[in-house]
Simulated scan of single mutants.
Amino acid sequence: MIRMVVADDQELVRVGFAMILDAQADIEVVAEAGNGFEAVAAAREHRPDVVLLDIRMPGLDGIEAARIIGVETVCRMVMLTTFDQDDHIFDALRAGASGFLLKDVRRDDLVHAIRVVAAGESLLAPSVTRRLIDQFTSTDSTGLLPMERLAVLTNRERTTLQMLAEGKSNPEIAAAMVVSTHTAKTHVSNVLTKLGLRDRVQAVIAAYETGLVVPGQR
């Protein structure tokens, strides 16, 4: 059972999402929250598997709430926004968000997103993915983290990180490295653990910010 907290300051939106999700046989909404403070409190109390957070809420916004929840719990977080051009997408991902969806998301896509993130994967709407890539290619985003941070990785793990930044799946990484999918999955897990990253999205960000991968170069 996937246990969830739904946080949005718009009651109709919040209740609507909660009803859709709670109606699923494998999802239980354990709490609702109308702002970031309530979302953090609910995450602390209920320790859900996934928290659905509106990025723009009064008092404590979704990004700050995500940062706190990310530090204090192992909850996975999916961010909601009204516009796919939201300037805070990058900040939300760096705060630990594993997914990013628009509020006009279809019912089936919403449910699918929660299941994907609960399973440990990352999920971004296509328009959000393009926005993230644009963030890297239009600004000087390299060198924000010391390259020495990657010293804990083996050569194979560093190669794995590069391929993660290229958007390759585990089977694609396995094929490129001529290893089994299980071995590729182990390399990915080692990269995340050694660098203290929550998921593949943060691995991509780390690859760019350390300068391991340079925007526009493959």
Rank of each mutant, 00 (worst) to 15 (best):
N155R: 08
E166L: 09
R76M: 05
A65I: 01
Q162P: 02
T81K: 14
R200W: 11
P146V: 08
S122Y: 06
V111W: 14
L123H: 05
K185E: 13
N190A: 11
F37A: 14
L21S: 07
G143I: 01
I20L: 13
V40M: 13
I20W: 10
G59V: 10
G16F: 10
I55H: 15
Q217M: 13
A31E: 03
F90L: 05
E28P: 07
E148W: 03
M79N: 07
R44T: 02
F90E: 00
E157Y: 12
A39V: 04
H46V: 02
T81E: 08
E64C: 04
L52R: 15
T81A: 14
Q217D: 12
Q162S: 09
V30Y: 13
G62T: 04
L153A: 04
A31N: 06
R44N: 07
M163T: 03
A95T: 01
A42D: 03
G59E: 10
V71D: 12
G120N: 02
S180D: 07
E38D: 07
A165Y: 03
V111H: 15
R44S: 09
A207Y: 03
G70Q: 09
N170Q: 11
R115T: 03
D91P: 00
I2W: 11
V117C: 13
R131W: 01
D22Y: 07
T183P: 05
E157V: 12
G62K: 15
A118Y: 03
R14C: 00
T159D: 11
A175Y: 05
D8Y: 12
M4I: 01
A97D: 01
A119S: 14
G70K: 05
A113Y: 10
I205G: 01
V78G: 13
D49Y: 03
V29R: 15
A33I: 01
L161N: 02
T73I: 13
P171T: 12
R47G: 14
L192G: 00
V128K: 12
A184H: 12
Q162W: 06
A7K: 10
A23G: 12
L144C: 14
A97F: 02
M57W: 06
Q217N: 11
A113W: 11
L132P: 02
T159P: 04
V105T: 03
A151C: 05
P48W: 10
L53W: 13
T160D: 02
K103F: 06
A42L: 00
D109L: 02
G143V: 00
L123G: 00
Y208W: 02
E121C: 04
D9Q: 04
I27R: 14
I133N: 04
N190T: 11
Q162D: 10
Q10K: 14
M4F: 05
S127I: 09
S127V: 06
V50R: 15
L212S: 07
A33R: 10
V5G: 08
G62Y: 15
